[in-house]
Design a protein around this nucleic acid. Structure first.
Length: 286
DNA sequence: GAGAGTGTTGTAAC
DNA sequence: GGTTACAACACTCT
């Protein structure tokens, strides 16, 4: 579930909450999720310090003060990174697990920091992973990603180039992390809606103005979602438990059977495209 | 209670 | 190369 805007929000919050603090202890509840091996994981992290957090697509990259390893964390569908700082701030991820009473049944690992901050990795379905990677492995991992849509490298000409000569359908393309990094099922539908193009359209059937609208929509939708601190998980709660989120801004996702917010005529339909639940307005998306 | 569906990704088969 | 099915897993909805 966490897509680019959600992962970026987590990155920014964690940056604020964990950087520069010594890691006093690491505890692992579900060792198989540490795909680089639990023993070395704990050994390399205890006594170390998070120096910088990057994001590539939906992957978080934690740089460490000592050693040549980086910590890679992927949340997949239900992962959360929840941070309890002494003042009580909590930042989150997927809402499937309750965030009170940490650690809980879904806590897979925790980092205990010098000032009392605790960073929890929770994951209900355990699809996510934590991996300690050396320089080569990190590079191997990162080079698979395509353009970062909210950076200067995501230009109209680079986008056009990606589409050129491609067949396949639009939805599959948008979900392909090796082309554009960070778009998942929800934002793929929202991007198509904004661009007024149906997700199941074949790439080679898209005319220039449709391509241009898609390019613009990728940036606009993701940018707005980052500003709203993401969509799907609403538990970026402060101590008061107040919810936030982009859900109310969703135009098509999860709105099957409801009338279109834009044209007011169409009834949002749900189909399967690229093997995923896919939503669109049959009236205003062509 | 059974069965289908769920925000991700990698792999295998066609 | 592209498309599809499926696996990893656990929970919710029908």
């Amino acid at each position: 579930m966490p897509e680019l805007p959600e992962v970026e929000t987590i990155r920014r919050d964690l940056q604020y909450a964990v950087l520069g603090k010594g890691i006093r202890a690491v505890k692992v509840w579900t060792p198989r999720m540490i795909i680089s091996g639990e023993k070395e994981f704990i050994k390399s992290l205890e006594g170390n310090r998070f120096e910088k957090i990057d994001r590539r697509g939906k992957l978080l990259v934690f740089h460490l003060a000592y050693g040549d390893k980086t910590l890679l964390i992927h949340l997949k569908m239900t992962g959360q990174l929840i941070c309890q700082v002494p003042g009580g701030l909590i930042v989150g991820g997927h809402p499937s697990a309750k965030i009170e009473n940490l650690p809980n049944d879904y806590t897979r690992a925790a980092f205990y920091l010098a000032d009392g901050t605790i960073l929890y990795f929770n994951d209900v379905r355990t699809f996510g992973y934590l991996k300690l990677a050396d320089e080569n492995e990190t590079e191997e991992c990162l080079k698979k990603f395509g353009l970062e849509p909210l950076t200067p490298e995501f230009t109209w000409s680079s986008f056009k180039e990606l589409l050129a000569g491609r067949k396949g359908n639009l939805k599959a393309f948008l979900l392909n992390q090796s082309k554009i990094a960070g778009i998942g099922n929800i934002y793929a539908d929202e991007i198509c809606f904004r661009a007024k193009v149906r997700p199941e359209r074949a790439i080679d059937s898209l005319d220039l103005s449709e391509r241009r609208r898609l390019y613009n929509a990728c940036q606009a939708v993701l940018k707005q979602a980052v500003e709203k601190r993401g969509t799907t998980f609403s538990n970026f709660v402060d101590a008061s438990g107040k919810k936030g989120g982009f859900e109310k801004h969703l135009k098509v996702y999860n709105r099957a059977g409801l009338s279109c917010k834009r044209c007011k005529n169409g009834i949002i339909r749900k189909i399967t495209a690229a093997g995923r639940g896919t939503h669109f307005c049959p009236e205003c998306q062509k």
